[in-house]
Simulated assay, not measured.
Amino acid sequence: MHNSKTFAAGIAATLLATMPSAAHAELPAPVRALIDAAIADGNDDTVRAVIGLARDTNPDDGAELDTILAAYETQLAANAASAAAAQEAEIRNAGLFDNWSGSGELGAFNSTGNAENTGVTAALGLTREGINWRHKLRARADYQRNNGVTTSEQFLAGYEANLLINDRLYAFAAALYERDRFQGFSGRYSVSGGLGYQVIDDDNMSLSAQAGPAYRRTEFADGTSSSDIAGNASLDFDWQIAENIAFTQDASAFVQSGSSTLVSATGLQAGISSDVSVRLSYTVEHDTNPPIGALKTDTLSRITIIYDF
C-alpha cells in the first residue's frame, strides 16, 4: 500500500507538530508501541481496531488517541493525493502505445444459419484509459476452409472513443467494419455517435448503455450497395458471480429503413489462473431484411481460451 517507514515517519512528524509533549507521555508506552506497529504494518482496519481497543482500555487517554487518529487520517489523505497526482502525471506523459490493456482469444466455433460448420475463432480487445478519454479497439475473425474451399468467413473490426463527462455519463464515437459473404455482404461500414451512461458500477457488477444516430453502408456480395441513416443502441452487462466465474451479456441494434441488425452475445467465463480463463459464448445475429437467398438469423457458439494482459 505504501512505504511503512515513510508513512510512520509522516505520522510522527504530524503528531510532534500537533500534540503537546506532556500529552504524548500520558498513553502507556506498550499501547503506543502497539499502535505504531499497526500503523507501520499499513492495514487500515487493523489500525482502527487497535486504536479502538486502546480507547476501551485507556478511557482517560481519549484526547491523545483522537490526536493520533487525526494524524493517521491526515497522512492517509496526503498519501492518496500524492498517489493520484503521480498516476495522473504518468497518464498525461504516456506515449501513444502506453497504458493499453486487453485480452486475446483463441478457440473454436460452431455456426448455424447461412453457414453450418465448425471452425477456428480468434479475437483481440484493447482498452486505453486516460484522464478524460477512453479508447477501445476490438477485432474478431471466424474462419474455416475445407478441401481448398472457404466454408465460413466472418471478420469484424471496431474502434470506439469515449469522452468522460462525469463519473457515469460519457459521449462516444465509434466505427465498425464487418465482412460475411455467407450472410450476403462483402463489406459493411458503420459510424455512430451519441451518449452513454454507466447505469451500474459496482465491484462485482457493471451495466452501461449507449445510443445515438449512425450511418451504415453495405456492399452486397452481388456487387450492389446501399447507404442508410440508422439509430444505434447497445448494452454491456458484466457480472462477477464468484471469484473465478463471470457472466457477460452484450446486445446491440442498428435500426434503419432497410435491413435492421440485432445482435445478442451471452458469455460465461471461468478463470484458470490470474491471466488465463476459458469462455463459452453464444451469439445470435438477426437481420430483418437480408439479401435474397440469405437467412435472417445466424447463431455462433464459441469456446475459447482468453489471455489477459
Rank of each mutant, 00 (worst) to 15 (best):
R181D: 02
E178P: 04
W239D: 03
T224G: 05
A221D: 10
T283C: 08
G187F: 01
P291M: 06
Y215P: 06
L262G: 11
I306G: 01
L176V: 14
N289F: 09
S234T: 11
I292G: 04
R181M: 03
V278A: 14
S281K: 11
S190W: 01
S259F: 08
R217I: 07
A246D: 05
R188S: 11
A265S: 13
A251I: 12
G194H: 03
D180Q: 07
N289E: 13
N289L: 12
P213W: 00
I200R: 04
V191T: 13
A230R: 13
S260C: 11
H286K: 12
R188P: 11
S186H: 10
A214E: 00
G212F: 04
I272N: 05
A294V: 10
N289M: 12
A211K: 03
Q269V: 11
L262Q: 11
A233Q: 01
F254P: 00
E219K: 02
Y215I: 12
D201P: 09
E243L: 04
V263T: 15
G267W: 05
G231N: 09
Q240F: 05
G231C: 07
A221I: 03
L176G: 10
D287E: 13
G271H: 03
E178H: 05
R279G: 09
N204I: 07
G193T: 14
Y215C: 02
R179S: 05
T288H: 08
K296T: 14
R179W: 00
V191I: 14
R179E: 07
R188Q: 12
A242F: 14
V276A: 02
I272K: 01
R181C: 01
I200S: 03
R216C: 01
A230W: 09
R217F: 01
S259I: 09
W239P: 10
S259G: 15
S252I: 00
V284R: 00
L207E: 02
F237W: 11
L235K: 04
I305Y: 06
N204L: 10
A253V: 15
F182Y: 08
L207R: 05
G193Q: 00
V276S: 06
P290S: 10
T218G: 05
N204F: 07
S277W: 01
T266Q: 07
D228Y: 06
D201G: 04
S301W: 07
D238M: 13
R302N: 06
E285I: 04
T299Q: 00
G187I: 01
G193E: 10
F254C: 02
S273Q: 01
I245L: 14
F254N: 03
L295C: 02
I245H: 06
D287Q: 14
A221R: 11
S226R: 10
A214K: 12
N232Y: 15
V255N: 04
G271F: 02
A221H: 03
E219A: 00
D236Y: 09
R179V: 08
L262E: 04
S281T: 11
Q256T: 13
